[in-house]
Design a protein around this nucleic acid. Structure first.
Lengths: 240, 240
DNA sequence: CGGCTGCTTGAAATGAGTCAACATAGGTGG
DNA sequence: CCACCTATGTTGACTCATTTCAAGCAGCCG
């Protein structure tokens, strides 16, 4: 299910504070330049929970922008089980890894009904040559992805289970806030299993920690609805 | 200690198979284009074991190429202890994270006497606008960094200590081979402490596993000298 | 030749995983 | 619309891999 003629301007205005917007907004692109960007966006597709966006091994030099909803990216190990590499909210860009092989080296699946835009990289690169500030922004975006991954490496290498879950909740909270949504209360679009997988823990551990945090009045948990009651304490736990 | 006038051509020819070379070689740049690249390289500096290359928080939009020797990159946590993000061999490029803030968000320290080249990003970007293939290469390079980090996330989230150490040795082995060095026997430039830190393990665990691998005739360990005796078995252990 | 740092080894402690049972919500079909 | 069924999530008891603590060893530098 795809529609054409999605405007980059409309896209970026729908989430002014996020990666996607930054791709074109910060340097104040000219109208003509904007038009060029708009032309790049070939398709916008709507996917439903469980649908695959792209698959590891797909020959497709594109990146994708999440417009609404949320998705996860993951790789599948030889053993068959998956490792989740990230959860992606509206305005975030995915598919930045594996551009070197022109083959996606991770897969992406929708966590709920989501709207996604595809940006063919070849065309994006061409436009970057014409709009210097756009090239800069693209580099920044990718660089930020690396920084994010580094934070995750630290989490997995050094933090214990309490710290991991607390850090995870704070990360989501911060990202919701950035998008003008409540940082205090939000709905998890991913299962406990997905959270556990992402954080390198067992489902049972995640469940226990959420229960503990709830008992301690740090958060309030009702199924997938999270309310952060004591933000400071959560921060304390995350960085112990 | 810096010298000027380091040629990109010389640089890339000294390690034909690695990231640095790929930055300019694959598309067959013209001589004139090569000259532009050469001009970008401002300084080449020689650092000694323990010297800092760049520091977290430094305001410096540059990336660095390891010409000889080896370095580690790491962040320092609130608690004060460091998390090593990667070890970097000749031909590899570092400093790709944090370009978004124009501030290094990790530090880098030499593991042995090493020669490093600095590439100011602003100038590199300018040249990218003039040489389209260079822009492509730069993107590929950064993208590969992300792929590498994703492999590491998987390692930390899913692999046990045996698998981690085996994977680490195989990674080094493969990278040495890529550089025309022996993939069978090599010297570790990093301490057990650094390996443990990088792999999210305790020093003692790393030591024990190396001893066990040695007892099992999979590798031969003499202090920091490693010899891979049974490569297939090591692969088996890494992916179990 | 000390003394230092890096490495190894053993024994004990523990955090998180595994296994198993149970609870609950949401979806499906009678 | 209700009853059932399956998914997902929770909880408890036990196990085990890895860490921690402690001690000893070996190479290396001044």
């Amino acid at each position: 299910m795809t529609e054409t003629n999605v405007s980059f301007r409309a896209l970026s205005e729908s989430c002014k504070t996020c990666s996607l917007a930054e791709l074109c907004l910060p340097r104040g692109l000219q109208n003509e330049e904007m038009q060029r960007l708009d032309d790049v966006i070939k398709t916008r597709c709507v996917v439903h929970s469980g649908d695959m966006l792209f698959k590891e091994g797909n020959r497709n030099r594109s990146i994708y922008a999440v417009r609404s909803g949320s998705v996860k990216t993951f790789t599948v190990m030889e053993s068959g089980d998956e490792q989740i590499l990230g959860f992606h909210l509206p305005g975030e860009i995915i598919g930045l890894a594996g551009l070197d092989e022109a083959i996606h080296n991770c897969s992406s699946k929708a966590l709920e009904t989501s709207s996604i835009c595809e940006l063919p990289l070849d065309e994006l690169e061409t436009i970057c040559l014409q709009i210097p500030s756009l090239q800069k922004q693209l580099l920044k975006l990718i660089s930020r992805e690396i920084s994010q991954d580094h934070k995750m490496l630290l989490l997995l290498a050094k933090k214990n289970s309490d710290q991991r879950v607390a850090t995870f909740l704070l990360s989501l909270s911060g990202r919701f806030k950035l998008r003008g949504l409540s940082s205090q209360s939000f709905i998890l679009s991913m299962s406990r299993q997905d959270i556990a997988n992402y954080l390198g823990l067992a489902v049972e551990t995640v469940s226990r920690i959420l229960t503990k945090l709830s008992d301690d009045k740090v958060i309030d948990v009702t199924r997938r609805a999270i309310q952060i009651v004591n933000h400071d304490r959560l921060l304390e736990i995350a960085d112990s």
